[in-house]
Design a protein around this nucleic acid. Sequence first.
DNA 1: GGTGAGCCTAATAGCGCTACGATTTGCCTG
DNA 2: CAGGCAAATCGTAGCGCTATTAGGCTCACC
Lengths: 343, 343
Amino acid sequence: MTEPTVPPSRRMRRNLQRVTMTDVAAAADVSPSTVSLFLRRPGAVSDRIGARVSAAIEELGYVPNAMAGGLAAAGSRVVSVIVPSLRNAFFSETLSALEGLLAHAGLQVLVGHTEYSLAQEEALVRAALSWAPAAVVLTGQRHTDTTRALLRKAATPVVEMWELGGVPIDQAVGFSHAAVGHRIAQRFVERGYASAAFLGARLADDSRAGQRAAGFLAGMEAAARPARLLEDPDPASTGVGARLLARMLDAPVRAVACSNDTLALGVLFEAQRRGLAVPGDLAVAGFGDLDFAAQTVPPLTTIRPSADRIAAQVAACILARNTDPEASTSHDTGFTFMARESA
Amino acid sequence: MTEPTVPPSRRMRRNLQRVTMTDVAAAADVSPSTVSLFLRRPGAVSDRIGARVSAAIEELGYVPNAMAGGLAAAGSRVVSVIVPSLRNAFFSETLSALEGLLAHAGLQVLVGHTEYSLAQEEALVRAALSWAPAAVVLTGQRHTDTTRALLRKAATPVVEMWELGGVPIDQAVGFSHAAVGHRIAQRFVERGYASAAFLGARLADDSRAGQRAAGFLAGMEAAARPARLLEDPDPASTGVGARLLARMLDAPVRAVACSNDTLALGVLFEAQRRGLAVPGDLAVAGFGDLDFAAQTVPPLTTIRPSADRIAAQVAACILARNTDPEASTSHDTGFTFMARESA
DNA sequence: GGTGAGCCTAATAGCGCTACGATTTGCCTG
DNA sequence: CAGGCAAATCGTAGCGCTATTAGGCTCACC
């Protein structure tokens, strides 16, 4: 019978290991359970013991191991947020607001960006689910079947944001982009612009921009003022806006609706360069009400979608999940038409 | 002697639990170890077994539990990235590039934003460390002592980005913001502008902007052309830029350096509104070379810091850590002066 | 001073996976 | 065809924590 020798390597690795809850318990002269309880529900522990435990935590510089905790509790305090692009101000603002709100509730955010690819979204969802997240936040309602299946099977709260109209996987928060397009068309019709065009970037991938375009074109059509559609395959940028306007000027129109404010900014600059008066020669409308929209010359007529409101509602959906067991719903956060001078 | 009854609740909860590696192993008729090995190093498993395992994974829709894996391996595949603001294009671009690069290497990103508060940074670092992250990425080199201590103790790779000059906790990637300020001053001196000002937002919190301001002022001073400093307590925005210019015009100057392009954009619009010719009446320089900088009228003279290059170097530092054991270093990614017409 | 009710604290049994050494298998050589 | 080596596979022992139950203590009241 051989002596069961303990392999030293593991123990050696452990030496670099952080202070554990057991160490804290020993230092505070209580059981590990009590430390755990104190950490999760400080009120459930007497003040005397609580003080001793927190002193021990402080003294030892204890940092809980979230993986051990999550494994034991069969769920983590992370929320996975998946957006098409982090460079796009809409999504970075939403992420910012959401992260702030969730951090407040003790939830951490795992981000991923898909570059508008559903396949990449699927990969990110798969990776996200491996953390048994408290919730998964997706952008839009278009996903692969596998994505849907993964999410459904995981029984994790799912919030789809920035788009409405389809059947939510679980919860959806956003507004109708077609309605946004319609609203712009309505303005153009009211103003009596004789001809118009929609300027878009990457319409094939960005289904929300596509819906705005479709809504706009339908709105113009309905008023018997059919409009053109011009698009660029590159992601929206000021440069693309300028380029699109330049492309359009071989058959000029009286007004342009841009798929977002960044594009509109480019249009404004290009118009200025070409000596076109806005809105005298050319009316310009955007989408997003980004930071600069109220400052342009002339101020930009646009639509404010309110990323903050979306983020707040998404956070509410996630946090309410604790109480509400099952309720597939859509939350319309609406949008505001910002009537300014450019159109 | 009582029958040791198994509490059913746990088991019941388990029923909703995902497919485990043991299930996959059973389906593929191999041991769990082999499944684990296949997942971690597919090459280490024979093709025949590998095919069986991946078929079983596919069939059962197995999603590995990252928490269990991380716990057993004493380390996770997440990188915590902490930035001051997610609304600031510099950081959202860096995050975007970094997330893309890391995702490629199988690493996931946990984000947090500090709102330029060191205390909040400390809280985020603490939360991040509870995941035994593969690396922690911080913005800047100013941290609380506790933050430093936590990081040092955790023995996790740390990368500080967007700032250089101090002693890195571990690795630093960025450039000298004072040098940026100097470079702008140099341009102003070359152009012979008689008087100048630095327009900044939130200089107290944003130490990098503060360094640019200081570098600029020092550069002007050195050329015997002392400049003014105007600042606004609000975060940088186009509106703040416009406001700052308006504030300045009671004692007009010939040229302004803005702490970033967003501010400069606001200055440009306000100048246009007031009928000031740029650069004829007022020269304007920015920082960031944001999307719109090349499109403004006139195009904006600015500094390109290259968020992408920073992100690439940060990713390189993190990924190289596997081989390189210990090397506290600074990586200067430099910056490019973009000479355009506005100054 | 006894006693029940409540409130705290402790003990137990894993969570699903990985690292490591042990064992088996496959293959080639003499 | 046995022996031996390398490669492939397996078994074991936790990782650090949480949920749940059981137990112990205190206190008020009779």
